[in-house]
Design a protein around this nucleic acid. Structure first.
Lengths: 149, 149
DNA sequence: AAACTATATTTGAAGTTCAAAGTATTTTAA
DNA sequence: TTAAAATACTTTGAACTTCAAATATAGTTT
């Protein structure tokens, strides 16, 4: 194959990955939750997940992690609090802050979520046999940090 | 680094790529459109894009490509038709079908969209210097087809 | 023709998001 | 010290997206 053609294809593939695949995964995971009788939407799951990933889980920090406004997050946290997934209390030192915490009910849900992702990634690795590819992994690492900047 | 640790990291990176990065790109592209004074939402852009990507652009086929219901698509196509981005006519052979087409106005928009993606992918390739990596490209190809199954 | 299937539209409800306006708290600076 | 500015969050209203159910329309089968 001509070098030029190969390169064009590579770019098309990266583009497609970045555009198509993600939606498919979201849909698959949505189905997965539905099957297991879990009533939360994917965006609610992402809120729970963000709470665990953020160092100091205040509204502002969580919203930043999610890339949404604090106002939007408030609405979402309202319902998750109502439903008993999240705790919510003022910070003692700075009482403007609201610190969000996971309740046991949420931890169960996140376990399902993590299992799903582990299974998915494991089967990708297994089916594609890319475990051993140093170059791939370091490239993906670069790609990942590229978008985190 | 221990083999086991390296592998665990690789999986975490793939997972993160599949989860985090996409949202960031969507947001960046949304900003891009806003800056250029384009009034369409990302989901409307995706409808236009799907019309070009599908072999026979009927409502059912386009909805399948997008992973949404035909009902949702109808709502979206209504406004895009109103605004003059899409044409809409019954199929001559099977008059149950509605064939959607792009109008010139839509093609301009998609050009901006494509430019954005080309620029993004080009700068990824350039900044990361992964042009020459055969293994990466073939792995990405596998990954891509894995999710298309 | 009647019943059935396939395709698309309409409508209503629920969820997500943002922007703007408002409240409470803390920090800064005169 | 105290008034102003900055920070953190909530509330509300509007726009958009999506789905599910009901309806409409076109084609197929018996």
């Amino acid at each position: 194959m001509k070098e030029e053609t190969r390169l064009r294809e590579a770019r098309a593939i990266v583009n497609e990955l970045l555009v198509d695949i993600f939606n498919r995964i979201l849909a698959i995971e949505g189905e997965n939750l539905k099957q297991k009788g879990i009533k939360l939407s994917m965006s609610e799951i992402h809120v729970l997940e963000a709470v665990t990933k953020v160092l100091e889980p205040t509204m502002t920090n969580i919203a930043k992690k999610l890339g949404i406004t604090v106002g939007s997050l408030t609405v979402s946290v309202n319902t998750l609090y109502q439903k008993g997934y999240l705790s919510r209390e003022r910070d003692q030192d700075d009482r403007r802050k609201v610190v969000i915490g996971l309740l046991p009910k949420a931890e169960e849900i996140l376990e399902v979520h993590n299992d799903f992702h582990n299974d998915m990634v494991n089967s990708i690795f297994k089916d594609l046999g890319i475990d051993e590819d140093e170059v791939l992994i370091s490239s993906l690492q670069k790609l990942s940090s590229y978008f985190k900047e």
